[in-house]
């Protein structure tokens, strides 16, 4: 999987490394901004009321 990505990135090793870093940061950003905020309310820490709202 990661080998496949590495082979399909353009440029020499340095460019590939830089691109990988950018890709990884983009993934982390999407996770923190969109995926985790969606998943977090499914955990029990949000239930602090007594009327189940």
């Amino acid at each position: 999987m990661y080998g496949w990505i590495w082979r399909h990135l353009p440029g020499n090793a340095w460019v590939k490394a830089l691109l990988s870093l950018v890709l990884a940061l983009a993934v982390v950003y999407v996770l923190f901004q969109y995926v985790f905020p969606w998943a977090e309310p499914l955990l029990p820490f949000n239930d602090v009321t007594v009327d189940g709202q």
Partner: peptide
Amino acid sequence: TFSELCITVGTLIVLFVVYVLFW
């Protein structure tokens, strides 16, 4: 591929814990 998947899932879980506890 299987080991790469395992590492990915592990990283995801660690990131999620960081998100919940810290972020």
